[in-house]
Computed example of a mutant assay.
Amino acid sequence: MPLAVAYSGGADSTALLLAAAALWPGQVSALHVNHQLQPAANGFESHAREFCAAHGIAFHAERVDARHATGESPEEAARIARYTALSRLALQANATGVLLAQHADDQVETLLLALSRGAGLPGLASMAPSFERHGVQFHRPLLGVRAADIRDWLRKEDVAYIDDPTNTNIAFTRNRIRARLLPVLEEVFPQFRDTFVRSARHAAQAQQLLAALAQDDLRSVGDPPRIAGLRQLPRERQANLLRHWLRARHQCGASAAQMEELLDQIDACTTRGHRIHIRLGPGFAQREGDILAWYNQPV
């Protein structure tokens, strides 16, 4: 069963790659994505290639254009490019799955970022232990492991890895959390990694229940949703159904303000002539007869 590890050359992915190769000798390959976003990127790729050659691990690399478009988040553009390339490399390597090296500290940072945005349960659930992207299964086996423990192990084993200089650039919010906020949390709540990660798991479990309820409601109301059917549900279940419908059918979300406006419009939709046409996520929701439709462009 061939397995792959997303390997950047950094501490976390180096530890994961060595652990996986020890557990499954000869069945693990390394997938490296060169984002070409900094001068050192080619050096990172060379280090990764040489490290794998020294340890007898199959190495696959792809260079991508991860530059962001005007108005697009640089982090989001890089993330999309990375997962697209990893999926392609995994399929080429016939890997049954890809292991990612995000750990407990990364999960805490993700949860804190979600809290700062006022996120709902999907955001508070943070990073899922497993998920599917582009037909490939991804797994995060280190979500319960502290970053410090990973580095302690690498030092003990005298293993070389790359220190990415962008990880200390506090212009990025995640890096500011890591450098300034986590040390304070460590001092005040020494067990915060365990408890925060546990809270993220609770949020994920609750979200699974809400998703199951939304699926049942969507089957009852219709897909696309019938307005009369929506009006028979409590407002909270309408919102839950509509958010699920947007994610599942249109791969998008809506802000809290947009959702509240849509729910108000549905509540007021008591006559055939009532018109609904409002911004919802990156597109528009519109009434068409007795159903609610969504378009990514105004119609």
Rank of each mutant, 00 (worst) to 15 (best):
Q251N: 12
E157D: 11
Y7A: 02
R198C: 06
T96L: 13
M259K: 09
W24M: 08
A95C: 06
H32V: 03
P122D: 05
L37N: 03
S130H: 08
F44E: 11
R193E: 01
Q107I: 00
A147R: 15
I276T: 09
S220K: 13
L86R: 15
P190G: 04
P224K: 11
L262Y: 11
L91S: 06
D194Y: 07
A148T: 15
R287C: 04
E261L: 14
I291P: 02
V184M: 02
R198Q: 14
R155H: 13
V188Q: 12
D194C: 01
Q251G: 03
N94T: 03
V5K: 10
A48S: 15
N42S: 11
Q137E: 09
F284D: 06
E50L: 10
W153L: 10
H55V: 01
I266H: 09
H47S: 05
I80M: 09
H202G: 05
A125S: 14
G71E: 07
A293L: 03
E186P: 08
D290M: 01
A128M: 06
R235A: 14
F192H: 15
L246S: 10
L17C: 06
A104Y: 07
A15F: 09
R180T: 02
W153M: 08
L218Q: 05
H250R: 10
C269F: 05
R287W: 05
D149G: 09
L99T: 03
F172Y: 15
G43E: 13
A95T: 03
G289V: 04
Y295G: 06
R275F: 02
I291N: 06
A54Y: 08
S13D: 03
Q265L: 15
G120T: 01
R279W: 00
D65W: 08
S8H: 12
A11C: 14
G289L: 06
H134L: 12
E186M: 06
L242F: 05
H277N: 13
F44P: 05
L142C: 10
R146A: 15
E50T: 05
P234E: 01
E62L: 15
Q297T: 13
L182P: 04
A81M: 07
E62F: 01
H68R: 11
A148D: 08
I170A: 14
D152N: 11
G9H: 11
H250T: 05
A228I: 00
L37S: 09
R49L: 05
V197Q: 12
A114L: 07
A15V: 00
Y161P: 08
Q286M: 10
A61L: 09
T14G: 03
V5P: 14
T195C: 09
P282W: 02
S126G: 10
V221I: 07
Q297D: 10
P74Q: 02
L115T: 02
E45N: 00
P141N: 05
D290C: 00
S13A: 02
